[in-house]
Amino acid sequence: MALDTQAIVDQLKDATILELNDLVKAIEEEFGVTAAAPVAAAGAGAAAADAEPTEVNVELTEVGQEKVKVIKAVREITELGLKDAKGLVDKAPSIIKEAVAPEDAEAIKAKLEEVGATVTFK
Score class of each variant (00 low, 15 high):
Phe31Arg: 10
Phe31Leu: 09
Gly43Lys: 10
Glu30Tyr: 04
Lys72Tyr: 00
Ile108Met: 04
Ala37Glu: 12
Lys69Val: 04
Leu20Ser: 04
Val89Tyr: 00
Val9Phe: 11
Glu113Pro: 05
Thr5Met: 11
Asp50Tyr: 04
Leu80Phe: 15
Glu19Val: 02
Leu80Glu: 06
Ala117Gly: 10
Val58Glu: 01
Glu55Lys: 11
Ala99Tyr: 02
Val70Met: 03
Glu106Ile: 01
Thr120Ile: 14
Gly32Pro: 09
Val70Thr: 15
Asp4Phe: 08
Leu3Gln: 11
Val63Arg: 09
Asp4Met: 02
Ala36Ser: 06
Ile108Trp: 00
Glu62Phe: 00
Lys72Arg: 14
Asp90Pro: 02
Gln65Val: 07
Gly43Val: 04
Pro53His: 12
Gly45Arg: 15
Ala2Cys: 03
Gly81Val: 05
Gly81Trp: 02
Gly87Thr: 04
Glu106Leu: 07
Leu80Ile: 01
Val100Gly: 00
Ala36Asn: 11
Arg75Asp: 05
Leu20His: 06
Ala26Arg: 09
Thr61Ala: 06
Leu88Val: 14
Gly43His: 09
Glu76Ala: 12
Glu114Ser: 15
Lys83His: 08
Ala48Val: 05
Glu106Asp: 14
Gly64Gln: 03
Ala36Tyr: 04
Met1Gly: 11
Ile96Met: 05
Leu18Tyr: 01
Thr54Lys: 10
Lys13Asn: 10
Glu28Leu: 02
Glu28Ile: 04
Leu112Val: 07
Ala99Phe: 03
Lys86Trp: 01
Glu76Thr: 07
Lys111Trp: 05
Lys67Trp: 00
Ser94Arg: 08
Pro53Gln: 09
Asp22Pro: 03
Asp90Gln: 10
Ala51Gly: 00
Lys83Ala: 13
Ala99Lys: 12
Glu30Cys: 02
Lys83Asn: 11
Ile96Trp: 12
Glu30Val: 05
Glu52Lys: 09
Ala92Val: 02
Gly45His: 09
Asp22Arg: 13
Thr34Arg: 13
Phe121Asp: 14
Glu62Ser: 12
Glu29Leu: 07
Ala117Phe: 10
Ser94Val: 02
Ala41Lys: 13
Val39Gln: 10
Glu106Gly: 07
Val115His: 11
Lys72Gln: 15
Ala49Ile: 09
Ala92Ile: 03
Asp50Val: 09
Ile77Thr: 07
Val56Gly: 06
Ala42Ser: 14
Ala2Asn: 02
Glu98Val: 07
Glu19Met: 02
Asp50Ala: 12
Ala48Gly: 03
Lys25Ser: 07
Phe31Asn: 04
Lys83Ile: 13
Leu80Lys: 02
Lys109Trp: 01
Thr5Val: 14
Lys111Tyr: 03
Thr78Tyr: 09
Asp104Thr: 14
Gly45Pro: 00
Ile108Val: 15
Arg75Met: 13
Val119Gln: 06
Lys69Leu: 13
Thr5Trp: 05
Met1Val: 10
Leu82Arg: 06
Val58Pro: 05
Ala49Gln: 12
Gln11Ser: 08
Thr118Ala: 15
Thr54Ser: 09
Val63Tyr: 10
Val33Pro: 06
Glu66Val: 08
Ala40Met: 12
Ala85Asp: 01
Thr61Ser: 13
Val115Ala: 04
Asn57Tyr: 04
Gln11Cys: 03
Pro38Ser: 02
Leu88Cys: 05
Lys72Gly: 07
Glu52Gly: 04
Ala44Gln: 14
Lys72Asn: 14
Ala35Asn: 13
Met1Arg: 09
Glu114Leu: 14
Thr34His: 08
Ile96Ser: 10
Lys13His: 13
Ala105Phe: 02
Phe31Glu: 09
Glu98Thr: 08
Ala37Trp: 00
